[in-house]
Amino acid sequence: MAITVSIELNRDIEIPAGYNEVFDLLADVPRSASHFPKVDKLIDLGGNAYRWEMEKVGVDKHAIQSVYACTYHADKEAGKITWEPVKGEGNGVVSGAWTLNANGDNSTKVRFQTSAQLTVPLPSLLKLAISPVIKHEFNSLVDTYMNNLKKAF
């Protein structure tokens, strides 16, 4: 048995650095991922595709690990970095985008949007109890990521 939890997130932040500097960091997936909490492994699949293996949460046979892969596309002129899921990789399907706008010479407005579906091996009876926990954890990770990115500049 397995349950699937769907998550949609949107964040708007302002980073105290110039557009080019912010874009270059976010478009460099390994560099950007180094600021994301609880990443166990980031594996380069080639062709600007990466598999994210997150740290396991839970105990022994009840531990849950999120694994997903995305292909990234960066368009500096358009101010957009997008990611699309790589089929057949892991237990998650994730897509999204960064949208960047210069706000003067030393500030960049950034919008983060992502949607994810995570399938975990738990009985469907637990979906009502587990879904909010998974969503809260994902929100918490993304909030920490945003704060870490701000601190990086």
Rank of each mutant, 00 (worst) to 15 (best):
M1H: 12
M1A: 15
M1D: 15
A2S: 15
A2M: 10
T4G: 07
V5R: 08
E8R: 15
L9Y: 11
L9M: 11
I15L: 15
P16M: 11
A17H: 06
G18S: 06
Y19P: 02
N20H: 13
E21T: 10
E21N: 10
D24H: 01
D28C: 02
V29N: 03
R31K: 10
R31Y: 01
S34E: 03
S34H: 07
H35Q: 12
F36D: 00
P37Y: 11
V39S: 03
D44K: 06
D44P: 01
G46T: 00
G47C: 02
G47K: 03
Y50D: 01
E53D: 15
E53H: 11
K56C: 05
V59A: 13
K61W: 11
A63V: 08
S66Q: 10
S66A: 15
Y68W: 14
Y68H: 14
Y68G: 12
C70S: 12
T71I: 12
Y72N: 07
H73E: 12
A74P: 04
K76A: 09
K76L: 02
E77L: 11
A78Y: 05
K80G: 03
K80A: 08
W83L: 04
P85F: 00
V86L: 05
V86D: 00
G88S: 11
N91D: 00
V93Q: 04
V93E: 03
V93K: 09
S95N: 12
G96D: 08
W98N: 03
W98H: 08
T99N: 13
N103M: 09
G104F: 10
N106E: 15
S107K: 12
S107L: 11
T108Q: 07
T108L: 00
K109E: 14
K109P: 05
V110P: 01
F112M: 06
F112H: 12
T114F: 05
A116Q: 02
L118H: 08
T119K: 07
P121W: 07
P121N: 10
S124A: 14
L125D: 08
K127W: 09
L128Q: 14
A129S: 14
I130D: 03
P132M: 09
V133T: 14
K135I: 15
H136F: 10
L141F: 07
V142S: 11
V142L: 10
D143P: 06
T144N: 08
N147D: 15
K151R: 13
A152T: 07
